[in-house]
Design a protein around this nucleic acid. Sequence first.
DNA 1: TATGAATGAGCTTTCATTCAT
DNA 2: TATGAATGAAAGCTCATTCAT
Lengths: 209, 209, 209, 209
Amino acid sequence: MKKREVPASVKDERLVKKRRNEMIKGAISLFKQKGFHRTTTREIAKASGFSIGTLYEYIRQKEDVLYLVCDRIYDEVRERMEKDIDTHHGTIESFKLAIAHYFRVVNELQDEVLVMYQEAKSLTKDSLPYVLNKELQMVGMFENILQACVQNGVFELTEQEIQLFAHNIFVLGQMWAFRRWALHKMYTLEEYIELQTDLLLRGILEKRS
Amino acid sequence: MKKREVPASVKDERLVKKRRNEMIKGAISLFKQKGFHRTTTREIAKASGFSIGTLYEYIRQKEDVLYLVCDRIYDEVRERMEKDIDTHHGTIESFKLAIAHYFRVVNELQDEVLVMYQEAKSLTKDSLPYVLNKELQMVGMFENILQACVQNGVFELTEQEIQLFAHNIFVLGQMWAFRRWALHKMYTLEEYIELQTDLLLRGILEKRS
Amino acid sequence: MKKREVPASVKDERLVKKRRNEMIKGAISLFKQKGFHRTTTREIAKASGFSIGTLYEYIRQKEDVLYLVCDRIYDEVRERMEKDIDTHHGTIESFKLAIAHYFRVVNELQDEVLVMYQEAKSLTKDSLPYVLNKELQMVGMFENILQACVQNGVFELTEQEIQLFAHNIFVLGQMWAFRRWALHKMYTLEEYIELQTDLLLRGILEKRS
Amino acid sequence: MKKREVPASVKDERLVKKRRNEMIKGAISLFKQKGFHRTTTREIAKASGFSIGTLYEYIRQKEDVLYLVCDRIYDEVRERMEKDIDTHHGTIESFKLAIAHYFRVVNELQDEVLVMYQEAKSLTKDSLPYVLNKELQMVGMFENILQACVQNGVFELTEQEIQLFAHNIFVLGQMWAFRRWALHKMYTLEEYIELQTDLLLRGILEKRS
DNA sequence: TATGAATGAGCTTTCATTCAT
DNA sequence: TATGAATGAAAGCTCATTCAT
């Protein structure tokens, strides 16, 4: 699925990129504080360092900003994941590392994840599929890792189980961001990583030391 | 923590209750479709079957509707849970039943759960704590069940692990609602219940038949 | 000019009188605090000790309350004036006493005078003449006193001068109420009375002891 | 005491000045007819020649219009006074001229004076002091004139008497506007000026030709 | 006669979007 | 390409008034 294009009046591609970067940065910081709906286009323009008129040279509607922001956040998460993660090792160790790394990325991009998490539903029917697709791609990353492990005989999981497990990992990672009001009081990030990894791997039926 | 009171101009308590029920019902159906911010007070009034003036006899601000809605949804979920769930049995069977029951309740109240899930963040600083507190109470329900199992020697879990596990169950239940765009294509509810229960209990390290 | 009648649905004249008294009392205290426009009919009803429905049994419109209030305040001032003032003596002493008495009445009914003063303009075209007429009657009182003095040879004033002088006295009395923010810091009531009387009588050209 | 600043969204200072002038002009004409409370912001915008949105680019709240109006009226009165009045001559003639001039200014700005007079009380607690302060400054102008006369030995007045006298002049001037319903039937402006000057100066005790 | 729930016109204010400069 | 003044639809909310009980 191709990126949805957000048309700009300005022709200079490099300029568009530059301005949109400023825009996204400004918008994220605002959405963090007050959410998409309570943020005005004027505020976005100001936070981006240009005028309201200029803002509209690079987007058509306010909602475009949200799309751009969501798009960017996913790219950011993906990028950080791909830089350090190997999806085809197929060992427990690599699996654990992948989870730990994902959780740390979520932790670093906590605010961003939260924004996307809470505001994605405000996307129009048009843009939503593009964003959901990106989410599926990320889930797919975990599926690949699990698949490799299964192929290596490390785990024994059906295809269905793999998919669900991948979703679980993805959501349990985000959970660190969207339930921080509860979790951060109870655990440090590293404790959270260890506990979750442990629960995921061994289940709870019986404890082995 | 006591309920936050939403003051009404109308004195007749029974009438207040009745009208607010109509209001909540109307509002949920609107919030489902367009979210809190895109729903106008006039629409809420209309969907509730009375005029805008009357609406404001029963609330002070638009945000009160959201609070009332969230409050109601939690009560609804809790009520259904408490009716059929026994938190002190402490057997695997009762644990499984609790999960299955919770997942089914989420399934029935899918739209409501989704609404609360997506709109709770729009609550004011005032009301948010009350709603979060209700959420913690629900998590507490799962903690109790787990605790009973641990005391019966069925599971071996530390206090920390119990808490996290309870959060996981809670979120994985909600997940059936907020990721339905992906999950409902893959599983029926009963499959989802069985798979999740299985993953939660046995972990994935090794499969036993 | 006859009193403008404010029609009531209730027939019992004594009841109408009683309820309107409560109403006027409540309304004055509210108008003092927030002015006519910022006071709601509900507030008036509450302050009067009955329900909004009942309020409308005794008036037709909100503006009726204002008329009733203005009417009452004038009656109050007049009554207090007439009780203690003799308009036909025609001596300087009686003139001075009249002024002093008037100023003291204004002082006692300060808030009421202020209300009438500030809100009278909100009366409808219908009621305004009745109220202005009452004002002219009060001015007439001072005209009579001055006339008596002139006839006694105490003052030497033309008819035109008498009329203007009467207006001046009337306004300079009210001034104690509507400029209290400035005057009360500078003078006590008695000082104010003495100074004004002195200025009015002797003028300022030359001082005699 | 510095002017209270009314913030505008529009940056161009000259434009702000121009638009606010249009606004003030439109608002005064409306306030004259129906008073501040019965005038809507839309009406103000329309009378000013721009849209409601534009109105709010130049003020924050409706009350700002009232403040701007009151502020302007005082400036207008002051300006006209200062242009033609000499406060330090200290002769009877200059005193008489000052009064006559002031009364003529009130006459010219009759509607404006009336508006300010009747609506000032609707100013918020915030702005009121600024406006009252302007009023005191105007009173101060008369104090100066009187002071000069006293120093020249023309009048014999204590400090207290000067202050009160200045207030009297100020109010008796405004009276020409706010009691015009009565006074204009009785006198022409010039008659009013002459009569008032005469009464103020000589008092009424005895008449000298 | 007294009540107070219901009404909806109408208010102030905001803000996404446009367009002349 | 950049600006920001102008726009007006539409939002949240109030309150005088009515009328069934």
